[in-house]
């Protein structure tokens, strides 16, 4: 009993140490806060917006954002539409906040799908080696040889693009990095003592893979997950921007940007704002990933 307590407090101390280190890592904190804010806004979207993101209004078209009132005394800029309105009179703030939902949904779902595929393939290749590894390595090479954007565009467009199709196609395409990293990490872990020990006490192979291997390669996987999430979000925006991804009237940031493109001369804020939103989210995710990598690397500990 006392032994257990000692272990518990030791665990708590270690957790506190990890937490302290994480909090003193600048890019981790910035990234964490950034992602957190976008996530909160997306979850609380109905509470932080006061316009329907789809509601059009002919008289309220292309209203400027609030700072046009501050700096240039533009009477059209009001707190009613703090970021102005788009070419159909829809509230820009609402559209951006709801657009965040789409980006995060695609990022998370596509990463989940690709993570499942890639990790499974990688673990199998790394653990069994031999012919399994050969086949999976061939799959990985094939995947790497395919031009992602092009194939994604073609498939999404030809399948009649929708949010679901975009998400699935990206998930099915972006598993290569997961597979490569998992494969080599598994190869390193495979011959470790605890794996041999588990084998010798007769643990089943799936059990070894799930309880011995997977937890020990989790750190690099989290880093890859952040990279892939950023990639998926970026690709979705690019696809939608090209008109072949998410379809209107959904407020995907890429789509919002594409629609604002025609107003580039008269209303530059319309391309600036969704771009900034995308930039901030991607930057935060990347910083978070860098932070996790630094914090979990052997030299960092």
């Amino acid at each position: 009993m006392t032994h257990l307590q000692v272990n518990l407090s030791e665990n708590r101390m270690r957790r506190q140490k990890v937490l302290r280190r994480a909090l003193s890592h600048r890019s981790f904190v910035i990234g964490f806060v950034g992602v957190g804010i976008v996530l909160l806004l997306a979850i609380l979207a109905p509470l932080v917006t006061w316009h329907d993101p789809y509601a059009q209004s002919i008289i309220d078209r292309r209203l400027p954002p609030i700072w046009y009132g501050w700096f240039w005394d533009d009477p059209l800029a009001t707190w009613n539409h703090p970021l102005g309105t788009d070419q159909l009179g829809r509230d820009y703030w609402s559209r951006l906040v709801y657009g965040g939902r789409i980006s995060l949904f695609i990022g998370l779902t596509a990463t989940l799908v690709s993570g499942l595929i890639g990790t499974t393939l990688g673990i199998l290749a790394g653990y069994f080696g031999g012919r399994t590894d050969m086949v999976i390595s061939f799959l990985i090479t094939t995947r790497l040889t395919m031009p992602v954007i092009l194939v994604a565009l073609a498939t999404v467009a030809l399948f009649n693009s929708s949010l679901m199709v975009v998400t699935l196609v990206l998930g099915l395409l972006l598993w290569d990095r997961f597979a490569v990293v998992t494969r080599s990490a598994t190869m390193q872990v495979r011959s470790m003592e605890y794996v041999t020990a588990a084998k010798s006490i007769g643990s089943s192979t799936p059990r070894i893979l799930l309880t011995e291997i997977l937890p020990n390669i989790a750190a690099p996987l989290i880093v890859i997950a952040t990279i892939e999430m950023a990639t998926a979000i970026l690709y979705e925006a690019a696809l939608s921007f090209l008109g072949l991804g998410v379809q209107p009237p959904l407020p995907s940031w890429g789509l919002v940007l594409a629609q604002a493109k025609d107003d580039i001369f008269f209303a530059p804020w319309m391309i600036t704002l969704p771009g900034i939103a995308l930039f901030v989210l991607l930057l935060s995710i990347n910083l978070l990933g860098d932070g996790v990598r630094d914090l979990t690397s052997p030299e960092g500990r």
Binding site: L234, A238, F241, G254, L257, I264, T272, L278, L282, L283
Partner: peptide, 22 residues
Amino acid sequence: ALVGQAMPTFWFALLGMVIFVV
């Protein structure tokens, strides 16, 4: 590098257009 990594190509292109073309 961080800015470059987080900057969507198409947005960067549009900004470039606004500044250097428009």
